[in-house]
Computed example of a mutant assay.
Amino acid sequence: MSHISVLLHETVDALVADKNTGIFVDGTFGRGGHTRLLLSKLDENARVYAFDKDPQALAVGAALAAEDPRFEIIHASFADLSEELKARQIEAVDGIMADLGVSSPQLDQAERGFSFMHNGPLDMRMDNSQGLTAAQWLLKIEEEDLANIIYQYGEERYSRRIARAIKAAGEMTTTAELAEVVKQAHPKWEKNKHPATRTFQAIRIAINKELEDVEHFLPQAVDMLKPKGRLAVISFHSLEDRLIKQFIQKESTLPEDHGWGLPQKQVDTRRLKKIDRVKASEQEVKQNPRSRSAWLRVAERLAP
């Protein structure tokens, strides 16, 4: 299945607002759908920088950079946003977007080892040029730590018995082996959901440090935005969405007044203004079922 960009027009339209030039960032290039639409809306003086860790995405990005001199692809996580942009003498940008979902090619290509639907090597790394594979990581991690990760990142209520079964199974090299171990250990399956869904999600999030990267990315994004610059982030599961929601809420709310009745001027530390929260339309969900759980949150940088 080719990758279909989720909430494509909603994200790009919210990001550019009324601008047609400036410096913009796509924190998760993927296969470049959002970036291409963004470039089509900008003039010849604009610049777009995109980040990705996936070697296949980087190859697509390199091809786009060869076609369009306004664009550059950066081999790094968006958690390194400030460092990478400042290395390019960029101190502030006009908009930053990120799509936190795993791309369809990553899920559908068996050799990437992300999915229990396609048997392949137990890998799951976004950047498969470095770091531990899922197979290596599962051998190394302690049972209690694995159970906690499956519970926290997969929101799996049977995390302890699943972790026990995985550790008892010993070395596994394929996604099918892991899926079968989880299936046998799982006492109660959710309707229309494979019993390994939550466990695979949890392991993928842990290996790729997905939530840690989001936590590092969000404050850097606000730091890098110019006044009236927009931040647009698409999330696909509750853990990510909660992080983004709470971050925007904190950055857009006046701090509590703890003056204990004493007259004093309250310091306004707000850096963001909430703009929108958008869910995929029924029509988009019909065309692309993976958009069903997607939420787009948009915020705008306030003047310091």
Rank of each mutant, 00 (worst) to 15 (best):
A294I: 03
D13Y: 09
K19S: 13
K188G: 05
N119Q: 10
S40N: 13
A57S: 15
V214Q: 04
F51A: 07
S103V: 01
T199I: 10
K188M: 09
Q201D: 11
N45Y: 12
I162N: 02
R31K: 12
A46H: 07
M172E: 13
T133K: 12
I96L: 08
V12S: 04
A165E: 11
L139K: 14
S159L: 01
G32V: 02
F71T: 01
V233C: 08
L7R: 01
G33H: 03
K265R: 14
K226Y: 11
L122A: 09
I234Y: 02
E171K: 15
R88T: 10
A165T: 08
P219C: 13
E143N: 08
K226N: 14
R36A: 11
E111V: 04
Q287S: 14
L262N: 12
G27V: 06
R88H: 13
A202L: 08
D276W: 00
I150Q: 04
M172W: 10
F217Q: 06
A294G: 09
F236N: 05
G229S: 12
A280V: 04
E240T: 01
L42C: 07
A135C: 13
V60K: 02
D145M: 10
G95F: 07
F247Q: 02
K167T: 13
A92V: 05
L239A: 13
R204V: 06
R161Q: 15
L58M: 10
P187C: 11
V60Q: 05
E10W: 00
L239Y: 00
E212F: 10
L42H: 03
A50Y: 01
D94N: 15
N192M: 09
H3K: 09
R112I: 03
A169F: 09
R230W: 11
R297W: 00
S129H: 13
A87G: 15
K279A: 14
L8V: 00
G259M: 05
D13G: 03
E256N: 11
H118V: 06
E111P: 02
A46L: 07
L7E: 05
A59M: 13
H237F: 06
G101E: 01
V214D: 02
L254G: 10
P289R: 04
I149C: 08
G95K: 05
